[in-house]
Design a protein around this nucleic acid. Structure first.
Lengths: 131, 131
DNA sequence: CAGGAGCGCTTGCAATAGCAAGCAGAGCGA
DNA sequence: TCGCTCTGCTTGCTATTGCAAGCGCTCCTG
């Protein structure tokens, strides 16, 4: 959590865009947001509205919520509880399945803070790579 | 859910305000948003940003997410807690962890299709109740 | 070499968000 | 009656968002 700095929405968007290997112009086309404006957003010169963020998320095929969190308009905690709440609310899952998923999710969260190496030997390098 | 008509954020805010029995000026004070602007929002003359919605939610002591849904910047389904979307949006999880959870979730959904009854006789009625 | 394609960025502008100052109406008390 | 308080709304303004037109750079091809 504390690893992420809310407010660097531009950096985050650029990062996701590079990860997706698309140019600004390609993203502009995919999102319907102008190329210069995307550039300005990435460089922190402009502060996009939620609607623009929504479009960008769609163009990058990522969750709009992740962008909202970065932009500070959605509380990180809300997103956190969403996974647990989502699992609990999913009527397609049996209670046992829910519990399994919740356990795994929670162990992932713990290993995030404590023992990344213990549970998943491959995870640390990937994690470091991600960040 | 279906009771709400996305787009009528102004009506919704007025409704909540009346429910809370506060005047526009009182809400303005509680929210830090100007009284005239609140009036304009309520009457649909202006389209408030997410930040303003956040402030209004705080002033009305309601969930910002509920306002986002009304304003159309957050998908109702997301709030309904779609598991896959929630997992993807969880910034505390690495991409690999997300993938693991998603894979497990999806396999659970598949086994649901096959042996749902066999594994958990209670599941079907609950589903029917939801829908 | 020139030209074209692709890249990200600059600039000026129109539209809109959000505000301060103030208006008009209703209700109440002296 | 008048004055005050409270209410919601009008209006004009500034700051900001998002865009269109275009620039400069790099790389590649004929």
């Amino acid at each position: 959590m504390a690893t992420y700095k809310v407010g660097s929405i531009g950096e985050y968007i650029r990062e996701q865009r590079k990860r997706a290997k698309v140019s600004l112009r390609q993203l502009a086309e995919a999102t319907g947001v102008s190329n210069p404006y995307l550039s300005q957003i990435e460089r922190g010169l402009r502060k996009p509205s939620a609607e623009i963020l929504q479009q960008i998320a769609k163009g990058l095929r990522i969750s709009a919520e992740a962008l909202y969190v970065q932009a500070g308009i959605l509380d990180d905690r809300d997103v956190d509880t969403d996974v647990q709440a989502a699992i609990r609310a999913d009527v397609a899952l049996s209670e046992r399945q829910k519990q399994v998923l919740l356990d795994i999710y929670e162990s992932f969260r713990r290993e995030e803070g404590h023992d990344g190496e213990a549970a998943m030997p491959m995870t640390p390098p990937t994690k470091g790579e991600y960040r």
